[in-house]
Write a protein that binds this DNA or RNA. Structure first.
Length: 514
RNA sequence: GCCUCGCUAGCUCAACUGGCAGAGCAACUGACUCUUAAUCAGUAGGUUCGGGGUUCGAGUCCCUGGCGGGGCACCA
């Protein structure tokens, strides 16, 4: 056992809790018991009571059969010889009524060792109080875990008519909530709900892909060479191999090796790591879903994305709507398709294909876009698009057919060799999906890698490296393949109405304390 | 990395131009056997984020460091 702080430095409140701990022991109670058998959750107990009430199976005085409830103490109202309290478990909360004449003198007296945020078990029959709240009349109780640090619960006022809850005080400090997510979760049921939804989303993504015949696989996190995206990596070192290793920035190149190997439909849900800044929509460690399907192209994949999104909305949200700020964005299939170059040409009022590099730089300057050094044609087009068109992509939209320089892993467009067969799907102005007809010509792939290497030599730290082993795999032959990557965190943001990625990641990256 | 706002009791927040650091909740003591933001009476609780400076006097002004929120940049 290690103390976070020496006892003499404890604040008054923490000292009082330690003293109560001693009091618990003195009374012969266990402060940290080993288990407890609840007969039902708080919610199930309430529902069971209401069913019995409606069915007329309560006794003459309106009491149910006995139940045992386990939970955390979240509210306490001491009335002298009776006490009202609330306990909360993973599902909900229920009121407890301790009455001196019911629990007995010594058991009632022992209530003095309890504090808000202790875990307790209570048993008794359920009734409805004069004010109408379904309540356990406690006949016996047990301390399960003594809490030595009070949780910052606010006071909850429940409007009897509307059931609406107002919380007073509480735990507002964002930093504290991220650093002590355990306390944030303990105090905020709605935060727990966001993460339940996140889990459901991931379950449904899996269910959907499994149903489509995809195989879930795992590929290396530690890689000798990183690739599959444009980003700076985290670098680490393996001691016994004495070798530099990178944390993956994408799963792409490994998954396509598997398609070469004969797994025709594969997917992976995995953490990727990009050594970049933090923002409302960027955490350096984030969850990515990627899948690859043999014998398909990007058109097929757009169809799959549409079906997948509808499946997740139907099964998790229950309606085909995405909340974005105060707006509700209807999700209707098929989604709009917008050619990147033609959309940008429209916004600029001239044909992007006809514009020289100097023209593009000029327009970028006019728009106040800085940091153009080292930007090639592709990056410029991308920046202009990001500035002029992207913010307007609120309803689900596939932006398609990106310039070749932007997409070193995508097949050249079958009708226009300046473009690739690629799409990015935007909702609410944010990119969620990115997919393409996968480049499977090893000679073309080497050329593209070499073009990337040239960019790299010019100082583009995000340009991709040449991956000879991947080219060797392509030389064996990869069938025509469509692939898609999706930011799981961003999708969860959309589905839960959260505006910061930190609110859908349990432990977002923060600078270390101290 | 830049801009900006913030950091005061366990929590949520006050403290006008520099002038005795405060409140509500939580805690502690007591009263109260259907309360629900329970109520009532009383008590205690502070390195005002750290360091330095100006001043008779700094939570407040200046310098410096730390951490965070928001925005920008970076990030397909």
């Amino acid at each position: 056992m290690s103390d976070i702080e020496p006892k003499e430095d404890l604040s008054q409140i923490l000292r009082h809790r330690r003293e109560k701990l001693e009091e618990v022991v003195k009374r012969g109670m266990q402060p940290f018991v080993y288990n407890y058998s609840a007969t039902s959750s708080t919610i199930a107990a309430i529902e069971g009571f209401e069913a019995a009430e409606a069915g007329g199976t309560l006794d003459e005085e309106g009491y149910s059969e006995p139940v045992q409830i386990g939970g955390r103490l979240v509210g306490w109202r001491d009335m002298g010889r009776s006490v009202f309290a609330h306990v909360e478990d993973g599902q909900g909360r229920i009121q407890l009524y301790f009455r001196n004449s019911v629990v007995g003198e010594s058991s009632f007296d022992a209530l003095s060792v309890l504090d808000i945020s202790d875990w307790i078990g209570a048993e008794g029959r359920i009734f409805r109080t004069r004010t109408g709240e379904v309540t356990v009349q406690v006949e016996g109780w047990t301390l399960l875990t003594k809490s030595l640090r009070p949780l910052p619960f606010g006071k909850v006022e429940t409007n009897a008519q509307t059931g609406e809850r107002t919380v007073y005080g509480g735990f507002q400090d964002q930093e504290g909530r991220y650093r002590q997510r355990y306390a944030d979760l303990a105090v905020h049921p709605d935060v727990r709900e966001v993460f339940r939804t996140r889990a459901k989303v991931i379950t449904e993504l899996r269910r959907f892909l499994d149903g489509e015949g995809f195989l879930e696989v795992e590929t290396p996190v530690l890689q000798p060479l990183y690739g599959g995206a444009s980003a700076r990596p985290f670098v680490t070192h393996h001691h016994s191999l004495d070798q530099r290793m990178y944390l993956r920035i994408a799963d792409e190149l490994y998954l396509k090796r598997l398609v070469v190997g004969g797994f025709e439909r594969v997917y992976e849900i995995a953490k990727d790591f990009r050594n970049e800044g933090l923002s409302r929509v960027h955490n350096p460690e984030f969850t990515m879903l990627e899948w690859y399907q043999a014998f398909s192209d990007y058109e097929d994949q757009m169809g799959l994305v549409e079906r997948m999104l509808v499946h997740v909305l139907d099964s998790v949200v229950g309606e085909r709507v995405i909340r974005h700020g105060d707006d509700e964005i209807p999700v209707t299939v098929p989604f709009r398709r917008l050619g990147l170059v033609s959309a940008l040409s429209g916004a600029l009022g001239e044909d992007v294909h006809e514009m020289s590099l100097e023209d593009l730089i000029g327009r970028a300057h006019e728009l106040g876009i800085s940091d153009l050094e080292g930007s090639g044609r592709g990056k410029l087009i991308d920046k202009l698009f990001g500035e002029l068109v992207e913010p307007q992509l609120i309803e689900p939209t596939f932006v398609i057919d990106h310039p070749k320089e932007l997409s070193p892993l995508a097949k050249v467009h079958r009708d226009d060799d300046r473009l690739t067969e690629r799409f990015e799907m935007y909702i609410g102005g944010a990119e969620i999906f990115n997919g393409f007809s996968e480049l499977n010509d090893p000679i073309d792939q080497r050329d593209r890698f070499e073009a990337q290497a040239a960019l790299r030599d010019e100082g583009d730290e995000e340009a991709q490296q040449i991956d000879d082993d991947y080219i060797r795999a392509l030389e064996y032959g990869m069938p025509p393949t469509g692939g898609v990557g999706m930011g799981v965190d961003r999708l969860v943001m959309m589905l839960t109405g959260q505006s910061s990625i930190r609110d859908v990641i349990l432990f977002p990256i923060l600078r270390s304390e101290e």
